[in-house]
Design a protein around this nucleic acid. Structure first.
Length: 498
RNA sequence: GGUAACGUGGCCGAGUGGCUAGGCUCAGCUCUGCAAAAGCUGCUACAGCGGUUCGAAUCCGCUCGUUACCUCCA
């Protein structure tokens, strides 16, 4: 495949050819969730987006180290002021240890992502497990004169930093605008400037989650964990940093500032990737709007805006049918359409399993034009992926390919019109992209017990009609599945074979 | 208020100077015991107004509308 992957880099605001720093190794860091609540559609979009990037890079032969963190400390209700820690607030509410909250929601997050066929990252570090690394980084920034201590807390000195660096280079802001727009917030007396952000916060006496540091018993600022952990596992400069568009400012901006101000002196990542938001009725799903749709509600059909339950693969397909940098509007109609599209793609997968190129028929009536057309379609599939992970285009091309596969299956196109090479390319492309790269897999069929009842019904009829050959066949086939039929006086039943 | 982005056919959603995106829906045809699936055909759109150009949905300007970030959020 001589096509090259292009990625849109927020840092440069344009699509760039992806060239890893140390091929074939690729280092990739993605901002994971703060585990204080149920995972929702937005988490799914982010996870699926970077899962596809991860899968695609691997399919292209890269050796990827994928790090996705779990934020379990330091994420305050309000940034860098006197807000409560999200985790701790939840813990108090539910009368739990903060780490119980963390574990609980981390487990659910993992479970839901597994349903969505999202591969686990290679390393999943937690902020609370990297306090030492974070303290070290703060010390570096202090030593470099770009942070200051105030009453046991340490703040990043944005104005000082901005003298030699560009604070706002990622999100396209400038410090004057920021200063002009910062609203007066209470409890910020310690900060020299409203734009400064916390690297370390001194804990109030009531605060449970606290660690010793040179400055105070306290906890690290939210932005710091990502800088410290990405550096620890991927180095001072790595290839890809991903996350939601809403994290661009201030979170990612601060990450870059911290990395530059520390002894790393880098932007941390070379390609900064941002996925767009999910909207509901044209409005962003947001905490303050209270219009979140949790994944459990989606899979269970329990949310009030849902007309029905949607399976994880329907949701995955729905996400992939849009480009990751576009907002994706949620609606029942769109999900239902996604369901059908998904099943269509799966039917194609099943057809391909059964289709074989006949051994002896080596292109009886080769149709050069058709072969060319099919090969072009397979290239289109990859062209979509390479063009900034445009899964929407890839899926469109896969549907075009699927039409031909269906025609082949129905004999509207004969196998002899294709060369073996064309057929293999078509099959391999379809299978690889659908299952390995897009990560779409078959979902279990309906109720197995109901199907079994149907078989038992046929068994009963066969027996009544004394079609003993059929009776024997049914028994034998079911036995292969580990099921035995029991002819009881009271009726017919089944049991697991012991 | 500051800064961005977007406005595509009944719905969703790609594209981006000239060539059919695709999915869903709807109508018709082929196939078919009936149906379904599949294939084929049709519904041929790019907010409005100007401009650049041989040619614009695609570039530029203005107008209208929507949204996002600037505060917690993936």
């Amino acid at each position: 495949m001589q096509q090259k992957l292009n990625l849109y880099n927020t840092l440069t605001r344009k699509k760039e050819v992806f060239e890893p720093l140390h091929p074939p190794m690729v280092g990739m860091y993605v901002c994971g969730p703060t585990v204080y609540g149920e995972p929702h559609l937005g988490h799914a979009r982010s996870a699926v987006t970077y899962d596809v990037l991860y899968r695609f890079l691997k399919s292209q032969g890269y050796k990827v180290r994928y790090v996705r963190n779990v934020t379990d400390v330091g994420h305050l209700e309000n940034d860098a002021d006197e807000g409560e820690d999200k985790i701790e607030k939840r813990a108090k509410l539910e009368h739990l240890e903060p780490m119980e909250v963390v574990q609980h929601y981390t487990n659910i997050y993992h479970e839901e992502l597994r349903k969505l066929n999202v591969l686990p990252p290679d390393i999943e570090p937690r902020a609370s497990g990297h306090i030492i690394e974070q303290i070290e980084m703060i010390q570096e920034i202090l030593n470099n004169g770009l942070a200051y201590e105030a009453n046991g807390s340490v703040y990043f000195d944005v104005k000082a930093y901005n003298k030699d660096h560009n604070y706002g280079k990622l999100s396209g802001r400038n410090i004057e605008d920021l200063l002009g727009n910062t609203r007066a917030t209470e409890g910020q007396e310690e900060k020299r400037s409203p734009v400064d952000f916390a690297l370390w916060k001194k804990a109030s006496p009531a605060h449970i989650m606290r660690w010793p540091s040179p400055w105070s018993d306290g906890f690290p600022g939210w932005h710091l964990e990502c800088s410290a952990m990405s550096r620890k596992y991927l180095g001072t400069t790595f290839d890809i940093h991903g996350g939601g568009l809403d994290l661009m400012f201030p979170h990612h901006e601060c990450e870059i500032a911290q990395s530059q101000a520390s002894n790393s002196h880098t932007d941390a990542a070379r390609y900064w990737i941002h996925n767009n938001m999910i909207t509901v009725n044209g409005q962003k799903m947001g905490k303050s709007l209270g219009n979140f749709i949790n994944l459990s509600e989606l899979f269970g059909g329990t949310h009030e805006t849902l007309e029905q339950a949607y399976t994880p693969m329907t949701v995955r397909f729905f996400i992939l049918q849009a480009h990751y940098r576009s907002t994706l509007d949620f609606s029942n109609e769109a999900l239902q359409a996604a369901r059908k599209g998904y099943t269509k793609l799966m039917n194609g997968l099943n057809i391909l399993k059964k289709l074989e190129y006949p051994e002896e028929t080596e292109a009886l009536a080769p149709d050069e034009k058709l072969n060319q057309e099919l090969l072009k379609l397979t290239e289109d599939c990859y062209r979509g992926m390479n063009d900034d992970l445009n899964t929407a285009r890839t899926i469109a091309s896969l549907f075009n390919l699927l039409k031909k596969i269906n025609s082949l299956n129905l004999g509207q196109i004969s196998m002899g019109q294709l060369s073996r090479g064309t057929f293999d390319t078509v099959r391999d492309t379809y299978q690889e992209l659908v299952t390995d790269v897009l990560g779409l897999q078959e979902e279990p069929l309906g109720d197995m017990e109901e199907m079994l009842d149907l078989v038992l019904q046929f068994y009963k009829e066969a027996k009544e009609n004394k079609h003993y050959d059929k009776v024997d066949t049914i028994r034998a086939e079911l036995k292969k599945q580990g099921i035995v039929i029991k002819d009881l006086k009271t009726g017919i039943d089944w049991a697991y074979e012991e």
